[in-house]
């Protein structure tokens, strides 16, 4: 199992992409898609520096993704309101510093994707030599609120999923 399917989610994703691209469920496409889904992960395994993580706690993951989707839509409307109605001089855009406890690189990658997808916040980098995240916030009201939100809403589920 492990030798022929290094990462089952990747295989399933490849098969789905192949079927969607061809827009058909014909047996020939299924066969070729399955062939690709087996061969491509095997050939690309040396390109992946870290071992794939086993897929754990789908419920926590689903809840995290759903809540960040809601957050994305909400902050989209916030940012549009600010762009339309706020004077640019009155904006308080700042870099803030968030101390992180999450260590797993996969978890950090997912965290950066979630934070960057949310309009209004952009991940800059993890400051070299520390374990702090530099984050740019579009309209900063309360620095401590942002730190608490990121730590409880995003980081806590990710620690549960990746750092066990």
């Amino acid at each position: 199992m492990n030798r022929w399917f290094p990462s089952p989610p990747l295989s399933i994703a490849l098969l789905t992409v192949w079927l969607l691209l061809n827009q058909s469920l014909a047996p020939a496409h299924l066969l070729l898609g399955t062939f690709l889904a087996v061969v491509v992960p095997l050939l690309s395994r040396p390109l992946r520096p870290l071992a794939p993580v086993p897929f754990r706690k789908p419920v926590v993951m689903a809840r995290l993704l759903a809540s960040s989707l809601v957050e994305i839509v909400r902050s989209c409307f916030n940012v549009s309101r600010i762009i339309l109605f706020t004077k640019p001089k009155g904006l308080n855009s700042q870099f803030i510093r968030v101390p992180l406890d999450l260590k797993n690189p996969h978890g950090l990658a997912l965290l950066s994707c979630l934070i960057n997808s949310t309009p209004g916040t952009v991940w800059v980098e993890i400051l070299p030599g520390t374990h702090d995240l530099a984050l740019h916030v579009f309209d900063l009201h309360d620095e401590q609120w942002w730190i608490d939100t990121i730590k409880t809403r995003y980081e806590q589920p990710l620690i549960e999923i990746f750092d066990y």
Binding site: I72, V73, C76, V79, S80, I83, L84, P88, K89, L91, S93, N116, S117, T118, P119, G120, V122, H136, F138
Partner: peptide, 26 residues
């Protein structure tokens, strides 16, 4: 349209980068 307007209207690069984010997501 609002995202592109933000790209033109906001005065500073670090603020402008948040404009296209709403174009791309929502």
């Amino acid at each position: 349209l609002i995202g592109a307007l933000g790209l033109v209207r906001l005065p500073n690069f670090y603020q402008r980068i948040h404009g296209p984010a709403i174009t791309i997501t929502l």
